[in-house]
Amino acid sequence: MTRKRGRGVAAVNYPTGMNLGGDPTQALVHSTPTGNFMVTVSSVDLGQGMKQILRQICAETLGVPSERVVVDTADSDTGPHCMGTFASRGTHRAGNAVIAAAREARGVMLEVAAEMLEVSTDDLETDGAGNIHVVGAPAKAVSVTDTALAAHFQKGRSISGRGMFLVPRSYPSPVDGAMKPATCYAHACTVAEVEVDVETGEVDVISLKNVYEIGRALNPRMVEQQLVGGAWMGISHAIYETTEPYYPQRDHRGVDFNEYLMPGPGNLPRTEVVVLERPAPDGPYGGKGPGEMCANAPIPAIANAIFDAVGVRIDTMPFTPEKILRALRGLEA
């Protein structure tokens, strides 16, 4: 039997945002004459799904279906400023800016509807399906489309809003480092199971059980995309990836996909994900940034599982077969 199994655990937290530089993002929301809504931002979608998430956040805040919201990003001629997509800040910062803009637009929309229905705005609610009605009296209603038409062509109102979310820069104390580096924290705990071949030093990750606490799963399928893909990247970082495998030497560099190793579709462990939600008080509908931290816990969990399996500590990333074999030989010696 040359293959030995082991399992390991790791637990981490992860900061949302880049408070140490000052962290602003803006958004604009406006209605078309027929009651569709444009969100204009300059935030970037890297594949994490920014466009769709901002759409849902805007729709929730306005009280309209998300199909009626279009997100336009990122054109510097039209989109107001955003620091950019990094530091797990996109959903949190841009989401909050969109909420602020959508709230202002909703306020105007309800004022117009209130005039049309001859009630007070306080008496109105949205049904999320495209109508505005009097609280407790769904029949006394006007559609968002008619409201927008009236605003444009009769009332002379612009159903629009401006949103700004700024986390002012935190300056670390030069004496003791006191600072506020982030706004909220996501959490994770991973249990990894591995099999190590003691003859070749190769590690197979058999399973990953990942528990992630992310504030709020704003769109669960998209959260799953991030978490599963991130866990894969964690495995990849743990046992395959580097541009300089013999740091600090600069030789044997991975210069392309022939030489830079990553697990392919044939190297996948059973990756399972459970999500907990403790809403962040300052997050958009409680959301935190889950996209970065999901890669972190699997790495040490795999390192600890390797130790559990074969009794060697690999304290240098990545955990290559060569390092494991050398460590095993050291153990024998």
């Binding site: 399992r7 655990v9 637990a11 937290n13 670390p172 104390s173 003791d176 480092g177 006191a178 600072m179 506020k180 580096p181 909220c184 924290y185 959490h187 994770a188 705990c189 991973t190 249990v191 059980k209 528990v211 992630y212 606490e213 459970v274 907990l276 403790r278 962040a280 008080p281």
Partner: peptide, 22 residues
């Protein structure tokens, strides 16, 4: 360590869930 009080912690719950599940 950076002199901020912890808010919104959920590490314990992640570990409880992991312990139970795994």
């Amino acid at each position: 360590a950076h002199h901020q009080p912890t808010e919104g912690a959920a590490l314990i719950e992640c570990m409880q869930e992991a312990a139970e599940w795994a």
